[in-house]
Design a binder for these strands. Structure first.
Lengths: 195, 195
DNA sequence: AAGTAATTTCAGTAATTCTTGAAATCATAG
DNA sequence: CTATGATTTCAAGAATTACTGAAATTACTT
C-alpha cells in the first residue's frame, strides 16, 4: 500500500507549503494523504505510506484534530481509529478560516481593545494609539464581513464569489450602495461620518 | 529613546502572533515598532528600542523588504537608511494578501494544474485526481474573486465589505444574481452545469 | 584615492522545534 | 481480572532555525 507518483508529489508539495506558515512538514503530509485518500486511514496505514515513526504520526493526527481539520471514524469490527478529511471542500475552507481567525485574529483584537483603554501620554504615544485604533477598526470591518459571509449557505456564497466585481458595477449603476446603507456592526464607527 | 508601555505590549504581542504563522518573532517585533512609530526609524534606533544585535535587525529589515512590508526612506543630510510602514492600512492589507497569495497559493495552483495533466491509472488515483481537480476549482474561484476585489479602489471596497450580507438579501430580492450571470473566469467550469 | 560611516555577510553558537523508541496508559475481549 | 492490541506520553537525541560579533563590503566625503 504505497503512494502513486501523483499522490506522492502532491503530498510532498503540501508538506512543503505547510511549513511556509506555522504547520510543520510532517503534519502537512499527513493531512495531504488523508485529503487524497478514497477511504479512511488508520495511523499505521499512514506510517506505512509516509515512513514516519508511529509516535510522530500520532502527534500529527492530534494536532490536526486540534485544528478540527481531520475527523475520527470507527469501522465495524475494528477498534483502531480511522481518520478522514471532510468530503466537502467548502467545509474545509470554513474550518480553516474559523480556526485561523480564532488563533490569529481574535487575540489581537482583544489586545488592541485592551490597549486602547490606556490613555496615551506623549506625542509618540498618541500616534501609536491612533494607529492601534485604525487597525482595530479595519479588523472589525473585515471580521464583520466574514461573520456575514460565514452565515450564508455554501451555494449562495459561491454565487456571490463568482459574481465578483459585477456586484460592484451593479451596485454602482443603481446606486444601491447608498440606498441600502451600512451594516449595523460598523454603524458606531461610520455614523459620525454622516453615512 | 525607549518604548512606552503601550508600545512595548503591542510589540511583544505582535512578535508572538508573528511566530504563529511563518514569520519569526524578532521580525514581527521590528515590524510592530515601525508600524507604531510616528517617524521613520533607522536600524540603530530599532536596535536601541528592541535590544537585538545590529545584524539581526539588518536581517529582519531585509526580510520585511522582501515582503514589501516596509519601505526605505532617506532623510536630508543623513546617509543612513530609514524605514517606515505605509501610512494607509489598506495598502498594508493589499500587500500582505498579494504576497501571501504569491508565496502560498500560486505555487499550489501551478502544481495542481501540472498534476491534473497526468492520467490516473488506479481507482485510488482516480479519486485523488478528482479531489485535486475540485481543489483547483475552488482556489480558482477564490483567487478570481480576489483579483476582482483587488481592482476596486479602497473606498468602494470598504463599502462593499461594510454592506456584508446585505448585498445578498438585495441580490435575493431582485433575483439579480440570476439576471447578471456568472463571472467570466469561471464560465468554463460552471458552464456545463447548465448555469 | 584614502578614509569613514553604514550596512551586510558569514561562520559559529544558542535556542527552538522535530522525531523517535521505549514506557505508560487506555480500551476491549476473553 | 488478565491479556492483548491500540494509542499516547515522554525524555533524549537530531535537525533546523535564530542570533551574534567580527570581518567584509558598499557608499559616501574629503
Amino acid at each position: 500500500m504505497n503512494l502513486s507518483s501523483i499522490q506522492q508529489e502532491f503530498v510532498l508539495h503540501f508538506g512543503e507549503m505547510g511549513s511556509r506558515w506555522g504547520i510543520n512538514r510532517t503534519v502537512g503530509q499527513i493531512y495531504a494523504v488523508l485529503f487524497l485518500s478514497d477511504q479512511p486511514l488508520n495511523a499505521d496505514q499512514i506510517v506505512e505510506k509516509l515512513g514516519f515513526s508511529r509516535s510522530n504520526v500520532s502527534m500529527g493526527l492530534k494536532e490536526l484534530q486540534a485544528w478540527s481539520l481531520v475527523r475520527m471514524k470507527h469501522l465495524p469490527d475494528d477498534r483502531r481509529d480511522y481518520f478522514t478529511t471532510p468530503e466537502d471542500l467548502w467545509e474545509i475552507v470554513r474550518i480553516l478560516v474559523a480556526e485561523r481567525k480564532k488563533r490569529e485574529i481574535d487575540p489581537t483584537l482583544s489586545k488592541l481593545r485592551e490597549l486602547e483603554m490606556q490613555t496615551p501620554d506623549s506625542a509618540a504615544d498618541r500616534h501609536a494609539h491612533e494607529r492601534l485604533s485604525e487597525l482595530r477598526e479595519l479588523i472589525e470591518l473585515l471580521t464583520g464581513w466574514y461573520d456575514d459571509m460565514n452565515r450564508l449557505e455554501t451555494e449562495r456564497l459561491k454565487q456571490l464569489l463568482a459574481l465578483g466585481a459585477k456586484i460592484q458595477k451593479l451596485a454602482g449603476k443603481a446606486d444601491i450602495l447608498s440606498m441600502v446603507g451600512r451594516r449595523k456592526s460598523t454603524d458606531k464607527t461610520t455614523a459620525e461620518k454622516g453615512a
